[in-house]
Design a protein around this nucleic acid. Structure first.
Lengths: 234, 234
DNA sequence: CATGCAGTAATTGTACACACTTTTCCTCGC
DNA sequence: GCGAGGAAAAGTGTGTACAATTACTGCATG
């Protein structure tokens, strides 16, 4: 343990650091739904006291990424199939608003930024699956950020992460490669196309993602039980 | 100080108790945007340590009802005009989903429950303004709860409270009496009418509430400054 | 061999202590 | 009178201690 005693007095929000790390671990599937998150272990891992770890868990619970049961170890949330469906329904509405605000108003710099993400997606499409999912999520989050609307950004970001978590439960074979092209088309539609056209394309895209992943498994209960148990049997 | 030493060992979530109390105080306008919420004072008021009070503030901050600045006293959030507009935009989408799920499917018991709230609204329409607003909010929250969809319930509830807070900033003359009738019409439309009709009515209702309150004040900056200062000058 | 049932270890819930920051307010020099 | 400076007060950030609860392990028992 020669580890990080860096930044003893930084004060720069350490809760946020843990939250960011965990969000990323979850979206990249380094952490699976149901995985345990003991406060002690988290604190030690990040070089902070349980107080901070606990606070981070509380925040992630508020975002729906963590389940917090009284007197019990926190676990990565395990969305039910119904939850997943509702999350995607809300997501469609929220992202339609994003597109509506952005249609025809993207700057060149913004387009370049988005294309850079799509490029990264393209390169990552044969690497670790987790990276692909994170990049796909990042694309949607960045799009939301371009609206400059804090409220919208917050909800879209949250719902995107929850959607990513839902996919971890309900889609075994990750079939997001096609999404790379869809993202490219989306950029074009938002940049040039009329608002309605762009919105429709976003709707299509999200519905496609949802049905590719969600509709195939209607077994609901038995399936997520398997998922919870999976990490313990390896 | 003969106060509450009741429930020394209840353990029943004390953070939640504080959150509920504060949410209600905010929605009823007992607390105004910008009001200070020191951890010590909160803890003492509810007979808990600062730890608990702090945790409650963290949760409310995650819900957008409290502003939490580093090393500074927490304050009741002061939504900007743009925030308010965005909140209502999102609210329209979310509540349309509620209506879509509920249209034609309300049970008699549910209708009775909703009408009870509207009755209360009617009785309270000449009493304290805060009560009216709370009841109006409760109507929408209860409606969402009837969908039985946890995710949708969570977001609708949160956005309703934030909308109520926004109204506290941007609508001086509270003109919600007409809303009582609109709520009655909504019940009927959801109970009997076709889905599209009910959705349209909800859209209208929310747009009406928003424009009655929001559109009149475009002064934005100067206005909320006045609001923040108000409680200190009395 | 399955099944209870201790007793122990692991873990959370909460209060509290102390360092550090911000705010307040009082005093002093001009 | 009035602004600058500098304690003192108020308040937050975070670690730690201890009680209470839950999880686990192994042993005795049918």
């Amino acid at each position: 343990m020669v580890e990080e005693k860096r930044s003893r007095k930084t004060g720069g929000d350490r809760v946020a650091v843990i939250c960011t790390a965990l969000r990323r671990a979850i979206i990249e599937r380094a952490l699976s739904p149901g995985d345990r998150l003991p406060e002690d272990a988290l604190g030690e891992r990040f070089g902070v006291s349980r107080t901070i770890a606990r606070s981070a868990l509380g925040q992630l619970a508020a975002e729906g990424l963590v389940d917090l049961r009284r007197n019990r170890i926190a676990v990565v949330a395990v969305p039910s199939f119904e939850d997943a469906r509702d999350i995607f329904d809300i997501r469609v509405d929220l992202e339609r608003q994003v597109v509506r605000h952005l249609a025809g108003k993207l700057t060149e710099a913004q387009v370049k930024q988005l294309k850079a993400i799509v490029d990264a997606e393209h390169q990552a499409r044969h690497g670790a699956e987790g990276i692909s999912i994170r990049l796909a999520t990042e694309f949607h989050v960045r799009l939301a950020e371009m609206t400059g609307k804090p409220v919208l950004i917050r909800y879209v970001t949250e719902i995107c992460y929850r959607a990513g978590l839902s996919l971890a439960v309900f889609s075994r074979p990750h079939s997001s490669e096609c999404a790379v092209n869809e993202h490219l088309e989306l950029i074009e539609a938002i940049r040039t196309g009329p608002t309605d056209k762009a919105c429709a394309l976003m709707d299509e895209h999200l519905e496609a993602v949802a049905s590719r992943a969600l509709l195939q498994s209607s077994g609901t209960r038995s399936r997520d039980l398997m998922d919870i148990l999976a990490p313990y049997t390896e």
